[in-house]
Amino acid sequence: MSDALTALLEGSVRTATPLAFAALGEVVAERSGVINIGLEGAIIAGALGGLLAAGAGGVVAGFAGAIVAGVAVAAVFAAFTIALRVDQIITGTGITLLSLGLTGAIYRAAYGTGGAALGTPTIGPAPVPGLSALPWVGPALFAQPVTTYVVMILAPATWWWMYRTHDGLALRACGENPEAAEAAGIRASRLQAAAVLWGGALGGLAGGTLVLAQAGTFAEGMSAGRGFIAIAIVVLGRWHPIGVIVAGLLFGAANSVQFLFQAMGWQAPYQLFLATPYVLTLVALATVRSQGVAPAALGRPRRDTA
């Protein structure tokens, strides 16, 4: 039983890591007033980018490739929504579909229809001496791959930047009232574009984590809706970096509860477990009141003319 609980905690943190990456990036984008539904696309692009770059130049190159791929996808989104001011939701959907298709095509072109890329370098757990031996939480928090520690540092750093710097203040102002931000001398569009690109970088990193720290390989559509789940996590975390981490862990736990059930010998269709995060997303979105908390200008394309 205690083993199962340890496994549950460890699994929660592990599955939460890519979600937390993506959600931490999305929280920055959304606080600037842009909802990037194309986050799913950044994740799948990051996964493939990570795979290809790691195959060529090792794990570090892999993560760099994941970031580049995520940023590239986000750049397309930014060009459409910020420069052209096309509807953010439809653009994001189109970009997700494009990324899913393109990664599939590139993957098949690179590895053939059957060939999975085995032998991809991955990173294993990097236990923190001493702390990882703590009962229960030790393996969960301190015997994870480096990526998990990066998220742990990134969340408070994001909070500090958002609430303790003028740039963070400007970002929050853009999400609430971009016209007022511009009147105060802030280049709202430029800031929003930067926020979207940052979100893309972290989305790419989420995809890279899936491949290089978890699965060890790529599969078409392996992002499996994580981009959308991350958006729900942002809502559940009330658009706050720390809240997002807590909400991400909740999703991680929901995903990992199958380990507990397996340990208890409880048999259920595995599809039920696989469906859990999706159903949880719906429940979370339906139960959390976002009105008054969500950035006031979120998703609003600015009108060209009065």
Partner: peptide, 23 residues
């Protein structure tokens, strides 16, 4: 040619329609 290339074409088309109507 991988048949998923069609999905790429379709998604690109969505974006092109969006950009075109916007322009």
């Amino acid at each position: 040619v991988p048949s998923v290339v069609v999905n790429v074409v379709e998604a690109t088309l969505i974006l092109m329609v969006l950009a075109a109507s916007r322009l």
